[in-house]
Design a protein around this nucleic acid. Structure first.
Length: 563
RNA sequence: CGGGGCGUAGCGCAGCCCGGCUAGCGCGCUUGGUUCGGGACCAAGAGGUCGGGGGUUCGAAUCCCCCCGCCCCGACCA
């Protein structure tokens, strides 16, 4: 492609609306343009990258036996109602105004619909079905360029299996394919255990990229032995021990003591014998949660523990109505009308201090076994940086991450809802066991730039670079330079290499800056002085290294460097 | 949806507080000329419903009210 004839609108100045490097550079390099919040046009240069990434994904999906579909983005709303997901997605599901249709945010329903109609026997499975298509979600707050958009390109695949064991195999195939995909795209990623959320199922993992711009929080063991989304992360923390032979409960007056820190200070005791009580709504039901000391409650864990579809802190007024006291004086002893659960660290503990359900009073020497009806102990605390990793050998660090992909053992949620069954060997009808696996194509691109750029621009990996070579005619005045670059341009194309040829009538500095901004792996620079000595220059974008090569050997060297 | 910021030429911004000549600057763009190894120089140009609507005023980019859009933080994110 000749730059003089191309539409690659580069921008010198950093756009005002872009904060993170990938977003700024995608705009500056003429890859994308904003149309509305979370809606982007992909311009030719960006679309080349999108196609390359899609092809890598396609190759690896095909390699594990995947079959590519092209599915409708317009879906009858009835199907979504059958699985209860019109309600589950809520406002983030786009609905069409003049027809009972929705814009598909994902495709479990449609896959399941096809399976229901055509998968009849255990002999028809396993199947791996995938698509690379645009999804629509009415995100309340799109952000960070293409990292979170309202319309985005996603690869999803779905596996259909006859048993949970077979699902494990399909799942593992995906995990391996995903590693290859992200590696081929030149990303430094890692895999974390993730929450299954309200989707049910037996497990899920996320492929994450460490980044300050990430929306997820992750706990990572320093020795690499453990990585988990903070929603499910655990650490080794001492549990409360049983002490002495149970003193009787005593009430103490604790005026104006509201927080755990104030309480510890007031009573001159260690935080570890304090049991913090918080009350949450869990699907319309109040639940009291006991945490040790100042341990922070993890709402995702709470939601999973109580099996709720949503949880949120209770309102102050309602709290008073249900317990007779305000937050800070709430406790588990004698509390009626709600479930009480506690963090594992408090399992069976005694000698504890908690609120008396009477403002400005606390109870001491509480024995959870003797004095309370605890409905269950769960891991409910939020892991903090510096805590001991589960293997006991190192510390955990907490980082931000961007989710690139998610693999999910779905189970029978959708096949049950849509009655997608098959006949087993003994003639019995059973629900199809499903898995679902997503990759954000645009996130791969943005993340690649996040990880591979410098002050001058993008640094593409050759696997997904829009072009391999950026050929620069330094001076458009010299006939020698023009003829040589024109000749090189032809030769490179004959070698089936992709080349962007800067044949514009503009100053050398302008061309060099654009070349660094656009970030092709190799720059082939033809200038008058070097050419007079029979040489051309090859600059390696990543290292900045410059090689002087005799003109006749240029093609060979280029091929060698790109091999 | 809560909090904050912004909206003036294609891009980046000044002007607004304290209303007043023809609304400015840099980059980019057009034409001519000079340049040609790190975003060149000279000259001449084109380009604006000052986000939209309403109001106050002799007079509004500027003050008041309503609306829209974009960005950031939070909530949310099968």
């Amino acid at each position: 492609m000749r730059l003089s004839k191309s539409f690659i609108p580069t921008v010198k100045e950093t756009p005002n609306d872009a904060i993170i490097p990938s977003h700024q550079l995608m705009i500056r390099a003429g890859m994308i343009r904003l149309l509305g919040a979370g809606i982007y046009s992909w311009l030719p240069l960006g679309y080349r990258v999108m196609k390359k990434v899609s092809n890598i994904v396609r190759e690896e999906m095909d390699a594990i036996g995947g079959q590519e579909f092209h599915l409708p983005a317009l879906n009858p709303i009835e199907i979504w109602e059958e699985t209860g997901r019109v309600k589950a997605f809520g406002d983030s599901l786009f609905q069409i105004k003049n027809r009972p249709l929705v814009l598909a945010p994902t495709h479990e329903e449609i896959i399941c619909w096809i399976a229901k109609n055509h998968i009849e026997s255990y002999k028809d499975m396993p199947q791996i079905w995938y698509q690379i298509q645009t999804k629509f979600r009415n995100e309340p707050r799109p952000r960070s360029g293409v990292l979170r958009g309202r319309q985005f390109l996603m690869k999803d695949s779905y596996t259909l299996d006859t048993s949970w064991e077979a699902l494990d195999t399909s799942y593992d195939l995906h995990a391996e394919a995903y590693k290859k995909i992200f590696t081929r795209c030149g990303l430094k990623f890692f895999i974390v255990g993730a929450s299954s959320g309200a989707m049910g199922g037996t497990g899920s993992q996320e492929f994450m990229l460490e980044s300050e711009s990430g929306e997820d929080t992750l706990a990572l063991a320093e020795d690499g032995s453990y990585a988990a989304n903070l929603e499910i992360a655990t650490s080794l923390m001492p549990e409360a021990a049983r002490v002495g032979d149970g003193k009787a409960i005593t009430e103490v007056h604790t005026p104006n003591v509201k927080t755990i820190d104030e309480l510890a200070e007031f009573l001159k005791v260690d935080r570890s014998i304090l049991a913090k009580s918080v009350v949450y709504w869990a699907d319309e039901n109040p639940v009291l949660v006991l945490m040790m000391g100042n341990d922070e409650l993890n709402e995702a864990k709470l939601q999973a523990a109580v099996g709720a579809t949503w949880v949120r802190p209770i309102e102050d007024e309602k709290l008073r109505e249900l317990t007779g006291a305000d937050g800070g004086s709430i406790g588990p002893v004698g509390l009626k009308g709600m479930k009480i659960i506690a963090d594992k660290r408090l399992e069976g503990a005694n000698g504890l201090v908690s609120g008396a359900n009477k403002n400005d009073y606390h109870l001491m020497n509480i024995d959870l076994q003797r004095d309370c009806n605890i409905d269950g102990y769960f891991d409910l605390r939020t892991v903090q940086a510096g805590e001991t990793a589960p293997n006991g050998k190192c510390k955990l660090r907490i980082v931000k991450g961007i989710e690139l992909g998610h693999i999910f053992k779905l189970g029978t949620k959708y096949s049950d809802a849509l009655k997608a069954t098959f006949l087993g060997e003994n003639g019995e009808a059973k629900p199809i066991i499903m898995g679902s696996y997503g990759i954000g194509i645009e996130r791969i691109i943005a993340c690649h730039i996040e990880q591979n750029h410098d002050g001058n621009g993008i640094i593409w990996d050759k696997a997904i670079a829009p072009y391999q070579i950026h050929l620069i005619a330094v001076s458009m005045k010299s006939q020698d330079v023009i003829q040589t670059t024109e000749h090189l341009y032809d030769e490179i194309q004959q070698q089936k290499l992709e080349v962007l040829f800067d044949d514009r009538q503009t100053s050398p500095g302008f061309k060099f800056k654009d070349a660094d901004l656009l970030g092709m792996p190799l720059q082939v620079i033809v200038g008058e002085k070097n050419l007079a000595n029979g040489n051309v220059e090859i600059k390696i974008r990543k290292s900045g290294e410059r090689l002087l090569i005799p003109l006749g050997q240029a093609i060979g060297k280029i091929k060698e460097l790109l091999a």
